[in-house]
Every structure is written in C-alpha cells, then in structure tokens.
Write a protein that binds this DNA or RNA. Structure first.
Length: 497
RNA sequence: CGGGGUGUAGCGCAGCCUGGCAGCGCGUUCGCUUUGGGAGCGAGAGGCCCCGGGUUCAAAUCCCGGCACCCCGACCA
C-alpha cells in the first residue's frame, strides 16, 4: 500500500513530547511565561545552543510552510517571481543609503575572517537585502520595458537583538522579502498597498488574526523608506504585534544604487522601489492571538494536523473493531484533502485529549465501541472548550460534516479574535483617556497631530507607542488628544511587542 | 553596558552554608495489569556535578581565575 498522505502515523519526534502532567501556566497569570511554555510544549520549537536562536521542530516548521504556501501563491498570483540573493553583503553596500546604515548598524553580525585570512572588506550577514538586491536591480534594469520588476526572496536574516523571544524576536529568523522596481511613484505606491492587502488577507483569512492596516509614523518608519505600512494585530494580553510591513522606498535606494531606466522619450529616469516582509513572527502572533489555558489553538487553514482521530478500546477485540471504523474514516477524510492523523499511541484517552489540545489541533474525533455500535463518532472542536464543544456525528458522510466543522471553527476563531479586539479598542479624546486605556490594556484610538518628540514623550510616560494611522479613516478631522491641535488622522496607540 | 541570578542525568531541580557512597520528580527502557478527560505496580538504563587551577587524606561542596546562559533595566520593524 502506498502512502498517499503524509499525515498518518507518528514520527519519532512526537513519541516523547516533553509534556509533564503539570498544568500549563495560565495566560492571565503570566502571559509571557505561558507563551514560552506553549512554544516548547506544543512541540513547535526547541532551545538551541546559540544565544537568541531557536531550533524549529517539524510541527512548527509545517506551520511555517502553511504560511509560506498561503503567501507564495498570492505573490505568484500578483505577478511576482522568487529568486535568491547571497547571505553575505559587502559592508560598503550598507553605507550607501545613509538612513539605512544608521538604522541597522547596531544589530549587524559581521564576518571579518574567511578561510583563516582577514577579509579585505568585511561581509555583513544580511539583516535585510535592499542593498544587495538594489545593486542587482541596477544591472537588470535598463529600459522602461524592464519594468516593473517584481521579485521575492525566501530567506533567513540575522539581527543581533538585545533581547530575544522564540519566534517573536530571534537573532536569526526566516521570512520573505519582496523587492520591486517601478517607473512611477504612483505605481510603487500601488504595489506597496497591494502587498499590504495580501498580508492582511493572509492574516485574516488564513491565520484568523483580525489585523488593522495602517501607516507607520515617521519615527516608526523603516530606515530609508518614504512610507511604511503595517498590519497590526491585538494579542491575548491586549498588546499590539506588528505582523508584516510594506515599504514605499521612494527613490532613496534607487538613487543610492543607480537603479535607472531610459523612458520612451530616451530620457534617463530613476526608478521607484518598494520592499515588503513578513516573518515567522506571524507564528508568535497565531500563538498569542488564539492560545488559551489548554495550550495552542491553530486555525484549520494553517494547522499541520486538522483532525486527529483518537481510537478508544479496553480490550484487544474492542480495539480491533474500532480500528476498522477508524481506518475507513481516515480514508474518507484523506480523500477530501483533510489533513488527518490517527493517534494509536499507548496512552490513556484523557492524556491524548490534553496532548492534542496543547498542540492546537482544531478538531478531534473520538471513537470507541459505543460509537461503532451507534455508527457515530464524537467530534470535539478546539475553539469551544469542554463538553459544549463536543457533539456526535454520523459516520455516514464524515468528510462533508468534518469539512463543514473545520470551516465553522476557522470562522469562529476569527470572530472570537475580532470581538476581543473590538472590546478592547477605545476612542480617546484626551491624554488622560489614553493613560486610562493603556493602564487597563488595549488599543487607544484618537486624533493625533503630534511630533516625533511628542510620540516619544507618550511612550516614556505610558509605555504605549504609536502603532499606526489606520488606512480606514473618517472623512472629517478632529482635535489631537495630546497637543490640542487640529488633526487630520486618527492614530492607534498601544503597548507593543 | 549597569544590577541580580544560575550552571548537577533528556527536562525541571535538591544537595553546597557545616568537605566524607551522586540524589529527587518528570521523561525514558522492559514486564504485567489498565484505557470514554492527564493510569498502577515491579524491575532497569542514564553523570566530565560548566571549564582551568589551588587548598585538603578527601572537593559538586572551600579559595582564585575564566566561560556560558537567564532575569530586570537601557536598547530594538
């Protein structure tokens, strides 16, 4: 018999989960500790011998692959192509864009020795690739016919952060970085916003994280960019997580790297470029948006295992009968493209229930002798805890009912997260209002006309930062809650990761 | 970079003060009994006590010197 679906059986990595029978720290008691425990106990990652770096285990990597797939197909659909550029960048490249080098210098890893010899020019381990890709673009682009140039790269990058946390801020991390060049500012702006839409689409419709699309303040802008756009999500502790950014680089990098083209009138023009990136930080976002007291909760569309089947039987004979039904159900689910796994490990059912809940599997099917008799199976949905989330399904037509249930779970997780965010987002008219909101946790939304200095003052006094100016703005203006000056845009302030 | 802490079995820790057989819990291996919400009993395996030096009859333990990691602060898409 050939294996037609990889989601069967259990690999060596899953036999001994380092799960003691100890309860998970409650997120309401210590959110940060809860987060760390989930990362390791849900089997997503392992600690590594290298400071600030993590080992991503198969289950965590499959989750990342799900995100990659969701993003990549959208990149292709919008005309982008993947390519790969070197890990090492000549140090001098970074210096060509003044703001850029200033922004990244403190967190660079630099190679000074190669093959036992001191290098003539040190090589920077890429913190991002605008410079080396810009250099390549300058060679690839000669004519208006070469535009637009739409490239994406899946890569690892290194940033020597002072403090790291698994997935959220690691020294080395995986991401994708898109880099494009255009003939006009309008085209570059349209591209920047299009990719922001792609990120929001993936966050909302795949990860079930209801992000807000917005523009960054000048202070929070990417080093070297004209404008930076962001998607911001609210985590379970009511703090904000920037989950992806899209930058309109204007002509800053094009000038620094001579990315120019001859237009239809034979005039030399400078390109307009963009860059946009989304990293495995999104995994941290999924954990913190959806996780609960029982562990991880994964949105069905990204879950490596969507359905786990737990057979129950006291005797050898009972188990034999049960397994016949299990095998049939498994085949039907696989045929319907459901990612299913059967848990035949020698543990008691209660242990398995808790185990799979820790790992966030969206739907669990329990099947024992009683179900075989009745032609049913007990379905437990991860988005609704306890008995309320359980119901008996007929074995007849299992593929259709489970598929429908998975869709229901996906939609409900988005609804739960959206309700939570909305319940913790408050309009503020005065600085006191903002202090109050930040004190109790959540997003504070108010008219803002402050300067960078004002922004830093708010941060110093409250701990909250300017997250973004939401793209969705009311038509009229208002009065800045901080300066009292007339303001054109609403801004969101919150404590952030 | 400032302050605090920790390095002992795969993981979490005790032992150190007051030097004298290397311990506990979880996990793991084998066997039997168990299985509809975290099973029980029995028997095993598993150690450079972070590294280097010193004191001592004797060092996980005391002394000196290193290294690494963690937490708080500063810093940071």
């Amino acid at each position: 018999m050939t294996i037609i679906n990889p989601y069967v059986g259990l690999s060596i990595h899953e036999r001994g989960l380092s799960m003691s029978s100890q309860a998970l720290t409650s997120p309401s008691v210590d959110f940060s500790e809860w987060y760390n425990e989930i990362v390791y106990r849900a089997d997503l990652a392992d600690q590594s011998p290298v400071r600030g770096c993590i080992i991503v285990k198969p289950y965590g990597y499959e989750l990342w692959e799900g995100l990659q797939h969701a993003l990549d197909k959208r990149f292709k659909a919008t005309g982008h192509q993947n390519a790969y550029f070197p890990l090492f960048i000549p140090e001098s490249y970074l210096r060509r864009e003044a703001e850029h080098v200033e922004g990244f210098s403190p967190e660079l890893a630099v190679v000074t020795i190669g093959g036992g010899k001191v290098l003539e020019e040190p090589l920077v381990v890429r913190p991002t690739s605008e410079t080396i890709i810009g250099e390549a673009f300058s060679k690839w682009i000669q004519s208006y016919r070469d535009l637009p140039l739409l490239i994406n790269q899946w890569a690892n990058v290194v940033r020597w952060e002072m403090r790291t946390r698994p997935f959220l801020r690691t020294t080395e991390f995986l991401w994708q970085e898109g880099h494009t060049a255009h003939a006009t500012e309008a085209e570059a702006e349209a591209e920047t916003l299009q990719m922001l839409d792609v990120y929001a689409d993936v966050a909302i419709n795949e990860a079930a994280i209801p992000v807000i699309k917005g523009q960054k303040s000048d202070y929070e802008r990417f080093a070297g960019a004209l404008r930076t756009y962001t998607i911001e999500g609210m985590m379970g502790d009511k703090r904000a997580l920037q989950s992806g950014t899209s930058h309109n680089l204007g002509q800053n990098f094009a000038r620094a790297f001579n990315i120019q083209y001859l237009d239809r009138n034979n005039q030399l023009q400078t390109c307009w470029t963009t860059s946009w990136g989304l990293s495995w930080r999104m995994i941290g976002g999924i954990i913190m948006t959806h996780g609960d007291e029982k562990g991880l909760r994964l949105p069905p569309r990204l879950a490596p295992i969507q359905v786990v089947i737990v057979p129950i039987g006291r005797t050898e004979e009972e188990r034999g009968v049960v397994m016949e039904s299990v095998e049939r159900l498994k085949r039907e689910l696989i045929a319907a493209d459901v990612r299913v796994r059967v848990d035949t490990r020698d543990f008691q059912p209660g242990y398995k229930f808790n185990d799979w809940e820790m790992r966030g599997v969206p739907v669990r099917l329990e099947i024992g002798p009683r179900d075989v008799q009745a032609g049913t199976v007990v379905a437990a949905r991860r988005d609704i805890p306890g008995k309320e989330g359980k119901r008996a399904l007929s074995q007849e037509g299992i593929a259709a009912s489970v598929t429908a249930l998975l869709n229901e779970v996906q939609a409900n997780m988005l609804k739960q997260a959206t309700d939570f965010r909305d319940a913790n987002t408050h309009d503020v008219k005065t600085y006191d209002d903002l202090r109050g909101v930040i004190e109790q946790g959540g997003f504070a939304r108010g008219w803002w006309a402050g300067s960078t200095e004002d922004e830093l003052e708010v941060k110093a006094q409250t701990g909250a930062t300017h997250r973004c100016y939401p793209l969705d703005q009311p038509a009229d203006g208002g009065t800045c809650f901080y300066t009292g000056k007339p303001a054109q845009r609403l801004a969101i302030f919150a404590k952030a990761y």
